[in-house]
Design a protein around this nucleic acid. Structure first.
Lengths: 168, 168
DNA sequence: ACCCGATCGTCCGAATTGGACGGTCTCCAC
DNA sequence: GTGGAGACCGTCCAATTCGGACGATCGGGT
């Protein structure tokens, strides 16, 4: 396809009314909905205990993104007056809708598998050896997962199944 | 700004003289070794046809990294005089050694699986539906892979198996 | 010779990263 | 109680990384 340099922006029918969500924003909204109001620090822990397993988020992002979402009205803020002056974020109805919309039609690309181990194999490491060193790590993860599943089941049989499904 | 704010906890005997390689650098070195000398543009194509499937590299990096590697003596440069004045890079013995060293003891962490689809399932999408839309994409990839395998086998039965192995 | 689309190289603004740093809080020894 | 010590928690910033705009060059068709 002879794609021209394409300098100019959309002369299209309309600008971009649809608020697209970045993956990190989806995570923030989703975690707020699943676990209720939270401070950035709380979010950090929630991420570590859930999506962090396959999608890490630098903690500084968990301090800046919620503010950005607040400007869009997708979350609301409440700030402590004294002490640490921390902010607590809650998802708004608008936020829930935006999240639902994203979930209803997520990006259709198939992501990446950024595993150093794969790189190593690709460039000549002994696959068996790599597998051997990777194995304990995966086993550790697996143990974690099983704990999560147990905990999840005990907690609430009627809860959304998504989080557990992603474990496989 | 007084002293270097370096964290330092290795009070250990030695600093870090070992040249560590970033993943991108590994890719550049590896591709140079596999396919011989190349210009950044060549590298771009090689990436697209191989590791790019699970580890994308923005093309601007393929223009800057080789230069950095050249400063370290891991690759050598030769520049066209006329015309596009393009640079052709070749891996040096030092580069080969550095690569071998990295391959011998790659980072031991287990990477990430940054798939938007997983996120969607996690936060409530219908897994079946997601699977349905993902399927054709994976099938397309699969077809590509099979072609690669066929091509690879035809080309050179004695060639390094790594690249094909990563396909699974 | 000139043009046109495809190929190729460089640059730069914007977004991400990860960590340093400093301010709070909790809890234990006294 | 009270004074730390060490764990929490929030903010800031330098350094990459990212991706795309933009120009320059090529090849081949007329």
């Amino acid at each position: 396809m002879p794609a021209p340099p394409v300098g100019v922006q959309g002369a299209g029918a309309d600008a971009r009314p649809v608020e697209t969500l970045s993956p990190v924003q989806v995570i923030v909204l989703g975690l707020l909905r699943l676990g209720g109001p939270a401070t950035p620090y709380d979010l950090k822990q929630r991420v570590a205990g859930s999506v962090g397993n396959f999608w890490s988020v630098p903690h500084s992002q968990l301090y800046s993104e919620p503010d950005r979402l607040a400007e869009r009205g997708l979350v609301s803020v409440e700030r402590e007056l004294g002490g640490r002056r921390r902010k607590s974020f809650s998802i708004t109805d608008a936020g829930r809708q935006a999240l639902d919309r994203w979930v209803a039609s997520p990006p259709t690309d198939l992501g990446e598998l950024r595993t150093p181990a794969l790189l190593a194999v690709f460039f000549g490491s002994d696959p068996v050896e790599i597998a051997a060193t990777q194995l304990p790590l995966h086993e550790a993860k697996l143990a974690e997962y099983e704990q999560l599943i147990a905990a999840g089941r005990a907690a609430d049989p009627g809860a959304p199944a998504g989080p557990l499904l992603t474990i496989h």
